[in-house]
């Protein structure tokens, strides 16, 4: 079986020569189970890619290996042209990267989790300023200002001194988005960020992501079960199955006219559920 999809469309306005994120032949196994199977994927700068598919198809793993939360067994991942887990040595051949090099490349990527993962013992403000102060070396005042701007952008400027436990799930997730953005990543990963939320709270989080897409030239990869949102927001939709991109295309192509049987079956099952 090939990994090539029927549709090979990438938005025409994105440069093909320098992808912001590139997976080349990436394989990830858990024992006998192959979660990513020689995966190839290129994402252009500023492109919004939605990743859909059945559970266990490897979509979350794709984000987790890009965030270096998991190691890969084969292949190369590049962010802005730099390999994530390897670095060129003096002769130009790739060797496993030092921790320092990895932290440098990892700094270009930010991630928002399904379960928010806010620091429960810190206020909203501290959650957002902690990493900029400790990692980027920002002065306290600078970090506070950055936090205030970002929290205003997600509509939580009045919750600065609250603790996560005092916020609703939707508000917590918006803080988590602000916290990731405070590190000024070039690539943002959203891993089922509305799955833990009550339906009426999803909208406020999706609105923030929508605004983020409009206002920034941020590259975004999102694993989602919100087909409506994927259709409206994404430049490209990738359907994952058995560790490979089974089919991909523009939202209209993939949702409107899926070519492959597995995709059609998945989409109609999802539609029935709603």
């Amino acid at each position: 079986m090939t990994t090539l999809s029927t549709h090979t469309a990438t938005p025409a306005d994105t440069p093909q020569d320098a992808p912001m994120v590139a997976f080349r032949g990436v394989t990830k196994r858990y024992g006998e189970l192959t979660v990513l199977d020689h995966l190839d994927l290129q994402v252009a700068e500023g492109e919004k890619v939605a990743i859909i598919g059945p559970s266990g198809s490897g979509k979350s793993t794709l984000l987790r290996v890009l965030m270096t939360l998991e190691t890969i067994d084969d292949g190369v991942i590049e962010v802005d042209g730099q390999p994530l887990t390897h670095m060129p040595d003096a002769n130009g051949s790739l060797v496993p990267a030092s921790a320092r090099y990895q932290r440098g490349v990892r700094g270009m990527v930010g991630m928002v989790f399904q379960s928010f993962n806010l620091f429960p013992h810190m206020t909203v403000r501290q959650n957002v300023t902690e990493a900029p102060i400790r990692v980027l070396g920002l002065r306290k005042a600078e970090a506070r200002q950055r936090a205030e701007e970002l929290l205003a952008m997600v509509g939580l400027e009045d919750k600065l001194e609250h603790y996560p436990a005092q916020l609703s799930g939707g508000q917590q997730q918006r803080v988590a988005i602000a916290r990731a953005l405070a590190m000024r990543p070039k690539v943002m990963l959203f891993d089922e960020v509305t799955s833990a939320l009550d339906p009426e709270l999803c909208g406020e989080v999706l609105n923030v992501i929508r605004r983020l897409g409009d206002a920034h030239n941020l590259t975004m990869l999102m694993v989602t079960h919100q087909m409506g949102f994927a259709r409206e927001f994404a430049d490209r939709v990738c359907f994952f199955n058995e560790g490979q991109i089974h089919e991909q295309g523009t939202p209209d192509e993939l949702f409107g006219n899926p070519q492959r049987e597995r995709t059609q079956a998945f989409l109609s099952a999802v539609n029935e559920a709603h």
Partner: peptide, 27 residues
């Protein structure tokens, strides 16, 4: 301490020292 806390630290690029001293140990 939930694993997500360490993962959030990793995603924010916090050093292992900061991760332990500021995030994991207080909890």
């Amino acid at each position: 301490v939930p694993r997500g806390q360490a993962e959030a630290c990793h995603a924010l690029n916090l050093s292992p020292m900061t991760r332990f001293g500021r995030i994991i140990l207080p909890q």
